[in-house]
Each structure stands twice: as C-alpha cells, then as structure tokens.
Amino acid sequence: MIIVNGQQHSQIDVTDRGLSYGDGLFETLKVQNGRPKLWQMHIERLCNGCNRLQIPLPDLAALRRDVDTVINNSGANLVLKLLVTRGRGQRGYAYSGTETPTVIVMSAPEYRVDARDYQQGVRAIICQTRLSHNAKLAGIKHLNRLEQVLARAEWRDPLIREGIMLDDAGFVIEGTMSNILIEKQGVLYTPQLSRAGVCGVMRRKVIETLHAEHLPVCVKDITAAELLAADSVAICNALLGVMPLSQIDNTVFPVSPLLTGLVAKRLQDADA
C-alpha cells in the first residue's frame, strides 16, 4: 500500500524535486506485531534531516495516521518506508522556500533473515567505491544514494551480504545498508560519522543502551587495518538488528557474545 500526501495512490508529479535532484529524505522502519519499531528515533532523524535541508517539517500527527493506515491495510509484520521531498519545483537547483513537501508512506513485505545468520555470521567485502566528505549532509538519510548504488554493484555473490565503505581518507564509515560495530579487547567501537555516512537508529540504540549500563562504547575514526584486526565485527540497521560478520574479504572473525548475544539481549530488554 502507498499513501502520497494523505491519499492512497502511487503517483507523484514529474517536477517533484525528490525525483529531479534527490532533494529529500527517507526512513526505513521495521513493523513488528503492528508496531513501528524505534519510531521516535526515526522521527527525530527525519526531523533533523528536514531542518538540515531546510525542508518544512511534515505534519507528524498526519504522518502517523498514514502510517497506521498502511499497517492496518498491509499486515502486522512488514517493512515501512517514509519519504519526504521538498515537493514540486521549477527547473533549476534553486528553491523558492514556498514549496509544499511531498510525504510518502509505503509498505513492503517483511524482511526475513535466517536465524542461523545471527549464530554463524555473514560475509562482507570492502568496497572500492569511496564515500565523499560533506559535513552538511553527514549523518542524515538523504535521498542521494548513488555512492551506495555503485558500491552495491561491486558484488553478485549471494553469499556476500554487505559491502563496507571507506571515505576519501581511508577511514571505515559504514556498510552500504548498515552501520559498523567492532569489538577489541572487550570494548565496542563504531566509526564517527561527522564527515560522511548515516547515523543509523539501531547504531544509536546500541550506543544508548550500552551507555545506560555503563559499558564502554567508543566512537572514533577507524582505519581498514584496525577493522581487520578487530576481535569481532558486526553490522546493524533497523531491519537486521545486530548481525555478526564471519568474514571480511579474506579475514575471518569469530562470532562474539558481546556483539550478538549480550547486545541482542540488552536491546530486547530495552524494547528495541
């Protein structure tokens, strides 16, 4: 089911700036038992992105009504995507500031993962496509995802489940669809994202949950060498939760209780 600006249909104006320039934002949510998980975190990131791009905030009450309508008509367990664009505009990059945002809510089938993947881990590669630095866009989930599209095209092997992306300086930033967590000597590390990357809601949930329990979490620049020298590595996003990596390129990693069992249990207890 798709709702556009409060109406059930699947069409947008061809002059929409989201189509022309990627001028907008999106959120991908997991819906479980009829409930959109981590809703407040998703909305906070969406609002932050709108403020950063100077897109008027959507009516959040109306947005939630549309979300509930889609869930009620599509099923209790599914993937939900929210998109907010600047709306229709004239030709050219400049915007007037009077545009009316386009708000889209759409559903997709439940994202299913084999439970054995959480026990055994999955494989990843380090991508050749680099993420460029742009502090004004870093952190938000804007619609310009061409770097991820190019990176995802680097492999066809179905056994490879993720590609890890570095920035122009060679630091580890994120996966094509996930954030990175590494463990070294009992401490959890995750890349800092002030120059590139998306601040994922599951990454935030992991950090906040462990901080609340006074467990060490360090956000820092991480080199590819440090990544490959980690005791264990995991990826995380709103659909996967926390999933261990068993191999990156030719480097094999054990599955860590810290990054799987302990983190997963804490997130479950925290109603992640």
Rank of each mutant, 00 (worst) to 15 (best):
K81N: 08
L82K: 00
T85V: 07
R86W: 01
R86C: 02
R88F: 07
G89I: 06
Q90A: 10
R91F: 13
R91C: 10
R91L: 13
R91G: 09
Y93P: 05
S96R: 04
G97Q: 12
T100N: 14
T102H: 15
T102K: 13
V103E: 01
V103N: 04
V105Y: 14
S107Y: 14
E110P: 04
Y111H: 06
R112K: 15
V113T: 14
V113G: 08
A115D: 15
R116Y: 14
D117N: 15
D117E: 15
Y118I: 07
Q119C: 00
Q119M: 03
G121L: 01
G121T: 11
G121D: 11
V122Q: 12
A124P: 15
A124G: 13
I126K: 09
I126N: 10
C127Y: 10
Q128H: 15
Q128C: 10
T129Y: 12
T129A: 12
T129D: 02
L131R: 12
L131M: 13
H133T: 02
A135T: 13
A135P: 07
K136Q: 12
L137N: 08
L137R: 10
A138V: 05
A138R: 07
G139R: 05
I140E: 06
H142N: 04
L143K: 02
R145F: 09
Q148C: 07
L150D: 01
L150S: 03
R152W: 11
A153Y: 09
A153L: 07
E154P: 08
E154F: 06
R156F: 09
P158K: 03
I160C: 05
I160W: 08
I160L: 08
I160A: 02
R161W: 05
R161N: 08
E162G: 06
G163S: 05
G163A: 07
G163L: 04
I164N: 02
I164C: 06
L166A: 04
D167Q: 02
D168C: 07
D168R: 04
A169K: 09
G170T: 01
